[in-house]
Design a protein around this nucleic acid. Structure first.
Length: 657
RNA sequence: GCUGACGUAGCUCAAUUGGCAGAGCACCUGAUUUGUAAUCAGGCGGUUGCCAGUUCGAUUCUGGCCGUCAGCUCCA
């Protein structure tokens, strides 16, 4: 909402510290023009007191004043929002029946929602794109008007979606419209000066989207697109999308023969021998990491509904649970567990606990089932059957700060092993919640103190916490910059009540513990999907499904190759002998395609000297393999495996080490 | 679940205005025994996702179902 003017004369402070005094209601474009005519040509929008506005919205308050050009990041959103209007302008020309919804800028571009009788086709999309080019060529200025409610209702009489939005605007809000040529939209702006500012754009895809994001309401047709100031940026974006497609875990998973899906079990994964090797390597790593400070337990997969009634899932999430028929009652009174929490509580409360045992950390890697909507399933990233590295910590309230600090460090160092960096998000009390304000104050300040002790930056997400407590989420960024929400640390004051959890304190009285829910990988399935894409299939040795492939040049050296293979295999490595009667070229090419970290070629020289000629992944087609004594290679690769090194170095000669 | 698109050999893709379904790779056989990123030849391989309907005839058109994908919604 924009403030009504309260001053008659405004004082603007420019970035260089100089000041300008202008009458209230002056347009920013006039101020910019007074600074310089050329600046006006380059100006996209202005930042007044930290808020972005366009050049044609009257100034209403004194404060800092900064001109934004295409070099300023916030200007891109302005351009994209204008691109959405230009899209709507084009769509209205080609399909006059289209009713308009919303058209905002988003992270990677923009979209606009339309209500149409017939859905858009790919041909429509290219027609719209062509029409958009005409609109930009026509160089319509974006004309802002501030209008009365009655006037606005008149203008959008044919657009019911806009009228609905209009009816929600408060009495004292300024109602503004923006017009570019033939198209007028109810919009608060800001916009670029005219349609010719949009030069480099592309419509990418269409999809259905519920009006107001409400699945009970009608579905609109959404058109997505993107726009940039510079052609290089648009090209780079499109290239990045192509690259991302190449390393899509579903594509790489097939190429590397890691897993498959089958219609007989939608949303569940068949891991091949190679994929299972990756899965197990990851599992071993997680177990090893948690051997010292955690207690690994296993609990049943199937529970009767009594448990879910206590936990509250029966009422709220039954639709998403796999129910199992009970022969005795004839009802679907059993369910596969969709999460481990309640089973951990049951085990915890099966005996008395001393305050001395706390914090007590239960961790479980069991298989979980959630009956996700068919439309939500996607590769390994959204499945119905998965494994979580699920941990619940039972602790005293005064231990929260130290415990959160411990868990934070644990999770961050875990991601580091993979070369993944993460962003922290701190989510505070939501509007609908349980517990007293006093309790939330304590919980939030404990979490915050632990967060700040790390010295890391974090994003505050107010009101985004779980209903039972605040939380810290970990967004991991992969090698091409895409964010994934993985780990979480959630404080829970509600379930200890529901399950009547207790411990005996120093005072010999019964006390209520606090529970912390912690996940690191999220689901292992999804984590592996992220790793596949992060490494583009080129796993470090410790994760690689096949660590070494041995290629004898001819059958004459097969015996030596078998000897080498056995030596490496007996040392615990995942090795494979490829002694097929194919040419060496062919076998090398295939090994490279399968992204095997090391390929050992053995022939006369190696057999005579007891060495191996080591090809290393990523060194290219013309590499000159190093001849390394077998035992030296072995001890190096074992070290690389043991330390879970991210880079390959076992092929190096001793002299180079 | 909703909107839309898609489903052809193990994989990647052709073809069919409704009339005998094809290639490359993979696989099998044979030859080749190869010092570093696909050796040659031959062969196998398909109820064109499933079930109905229309038709002399359906892989093609229509409907339903299943699955996949892009989004929306959801994600304890």
């Amino acid at each position: 909402m924009i403030d009504r003017p309260t001053e008659s004369t405004l004082t603007l402070t420019l970035p260089d510290g100089s000041q300008r005094t202008v009458p209230a209601g002056t347009l920013p474009s006039d101020v910019v023009k007074s600074i310089g005519e050329r600046l006006l040509q380059a100006a996209v929008a202005v930042e007044v007191n930290g808020a972005i506005q366009d050049l044609v919205t009257p100034l209403r308050a004194s404060g800092t004043f900064r001109v934004l050009t295409d070099r300023d990041a916030p200007a891109l959103d302005v351009l994209r929002h204008s691109a959405a209007h230009i899209l709507a302008t084009a769509v209205r020309r080609v399909r006059p029946d289209a009713k308009i919804g919303f058209g905002p800028a988003i992270d990677e571009g923009f979209y606009y929602d339309f209500e149409v009788a017939e859905s858009f086709t790919p041909e429509d999309l290219s027609a719209f794109e062509n029409e958009m080019r005409k609109v930009t060529a026509e160089k319509y200025p974006f004309v802002r008007e501030e209008v009365s409610r009655a006037e606005a209702q008149q203008r959008f009489v044919d657009d019911p979606l806009k009228l609905e939005r209009l009816s929600e605007l408060g009495e004292d809000e300024i109602i503004s419209t923006y017009t570019d040529g033939p198209f007028v939209d109810l919009c608060r702006g800001p916009h670029v000066p005219d349609t010719s500012r949009l030069k480099h754009f592309k419509l990418t895809h269409t999809a259905g989207a519920y009006w107001r994001g409400d699945s009970k309401r009608q579905m609109l047709q959404r058109i997505y697109g993107t726009a940039f100031f510079k052609k290089e940026d648009l090209d780079a974006y499109l290239t990045r999308i192509e690259e991302a497609k190449k390393r899509d875990h579903r594509v790489v998973g097939r190429q590397l023969d890691l897993f498959m899906m089958h219609p007989s079990s939608p949303g569940a994964v068949f891991w091949t021998e190679r994929g299972t090797a990756v899965y197990n390597a990851l599992n071993d790593f997680i177990r090893e990491r948690q051997r010292d400070d955690f207690h690994e337990i296993k609990t049943p997969l199937l529970y009767n509904k009594d448990l879910w009634e206590i936990s509250g899932h029966w009422g709220k999430y039954r639709e998403n649970m796999f129910l199992v028929l009970d022969k005795e009652t004839g009802e679907h009174d059993f369910s596969l567990k969709p999460m481990n929490c309640p089973s951990h509580y049951l085990l915890y409360q099966s005996k008395k606990h001393s305050y001395r045992e706390l914090p007590l950390r239960y961790v479980t890697f069991d298989v979980l089932h959630r009956n996700e909507l068919t439309g939500a399933l996607s590769g390994l990233t959204r499945v119905r059957q998965f494994q979580q590295d699920d941990c619940h910590v039972f602790l005293r309230e005064d231990q929260i700060k130290d415990e959160v600090h411990f868990l934070l460090r644990f999770i961050l160092s875990y991601y580091e092993t993979f070369g993944l960096t993460s962003n922290l998000k701190f989510a505070t009390r939501p509007a609908v919640r349980v517990g007293t304000d006093d309790m939330w104050d304590r919980a939030e300040s404990s979490l915050k103190a632990a967060l700040e002790a790390t010295g890391m930056k974090y994003e505050l997400k107010e009101g985004d916490g779980a209903f039972y407590g605040p939380k810290i989420d970990f967004d991991v960024t992969d090698s091409i910059g895409r964010p994934w929400q993985l780990g979480t640390i959630q404080l829970d004051y509600s379930n200890p009540e529901r399950f009547d959890l207790s411990y005996v304190g120093e005072d010999n009285a019964s006390h209520r513990p606090v529970v912390i829910h912690r996940a690191v990988s999220g689901s292992l399935e999804r984590f592996i999907a992220i790793l596949i894409e992060h490494f583009a299939g080129a796993f470090p040795v410790w994760l690689a499904p096949e660590q070494v492939r041995i290629l004898p040049i001819t059958d004459d050296y097969r015996a030596y190759a078998e000897q080498v293979t056995k030596r490496l295999y007996d040392a615990g490595l995942r090795v494979h002998l490829d002694a097929r009667a194919e040419t060496l070229k062919y076998r090398v090419a295939e090994g490279a395609r399968m992204k095997v970290p090391y390929m050992i070629v053995v022939g006369k020289r190696e057999a005579e000297q007891g060495t191996v000629a080591v090809n290393v992944r990523g060194a290219g087609e013309k590499q000159k393999p190093n001849a390394v004594p077998l035992e030296e290679f072995l001890s190096r690769i074992l070290e690389e495996h043991r330390t879970r090194a991210l880079t390959l170095s076992a092929h190096a000669r001793a002299a180079e080490a």
